[in-house]
Write a protein that binds this DNA or RNA. Structure first.
Lengths: 150, 150
DNA sequence: CTCCATTTAATTGTTTACGATTTAATGAAA
DNA sequence: TTTCATTAAATCGTAAACAATTAAATGGAG
């Protein structure tokens, strides 16, 4: 039995597990560091990245936003409703294509960007990572994100 | 205003955001790749890493397990109850210290390890990453995990 | 024009995760 | 020995996230 497995298959599996687990933990721990900075603004981490995306580009359909954030409507719809109830954005059916719901910032949502800019979230510092290291890390991460089935 | 921010503070913040978001996405996408392999075994990803930890070391209190997995009792208790109901493990109060609940594998739980060994989860392959690259990645990730406030 | 496949959001149900609190047990200090 | 701080697990409430399904709108093939 197990003859069909290549000799270092179990070794690679161990690597897989380690990499996956390490990603999983790092992701959670980083988000945990953001939390105390975001809560005063009334944002969760998911709300924060949603606002980041909107500050970059406004008046986009839910689908486009989901593609940017790697999230589907099942996650976005309730989140956007909440952000809307907080007054940060507006959801409105597109006139051109009534299947689409267009997300646009309110004045309050735009103002939030300035407050968010003050978030001293220097993760790289807190992880004692130098910029060089951080840049290389991002390269590898982006590479992996591209390979992911989006 | 913003005079108190160092000149490249906003640049670092951008890096922070990118790194954090990339971790968040990669973690989710990797776990998504595991899902179809784990579901047939009756495991979720969190259940899987729990079993991985137990296959390494058995008969440990919930707290110790939580330290290894970076999870607290709020997450572990319901998960362990489910794994227990599936027959993979047993939960029992320690005789020495009755605050502790000891988690131990059942025969079925041990048998599951063999089935799990057949999981062809070669993430590294699917991400077209060479072993060298993977090892360097793990080093950086471990470094970050150590810095995390566990 | 009609029919049908596709697309977009929304909805439903389940799992995950954390913070905060609660309860019980332990151990140390007075 | 009594009291109190600490620790362990459980519980509660809330937010996240995905899979699967549904409903409505669109656009293309015939």
């Amino acid at each position: 039995m197990n003859e069909q497995l290549s000799p270092n298959a179990s070794e690679r599996m161990k690597l897989d597990n380690q990499i996956c687990f390490a990603f999983y933990v790092c992701s959670k721990e980083i988000i945990k560091k953001y939390r105390p900075l975001l809560t005063p603004l009334g944002l969760t981490y998911t709300g924060y990245i949603t606002m980041l995306a909107l500050w970059e580009e406004d008046n986009i359909p839910v689908k486009t936003l989901g593609d940017k954030l790697y999230l589907d409507s099942g996650t976005l719809t309730p989140l956007l409703k909440k952000l809307e109830s907080q007054g940060f954005l507006k959801r409105s059916r597109s006139d051109i294509d009534e299947r689409q719901v267009i997300v646009s910032l309110t004045e309050e949502g735009r103002e939030l960007q300035e407050k968010a800019a003050a978030i001293p979230g220097h993760l790289i510092d807190s992880f004692e990572m130098d910029t060089e290291q951080a840049l290389r890390m991002i390269d590898t991460l982006r590479f992996m994100m591209d390979k992911a089935p989006c």
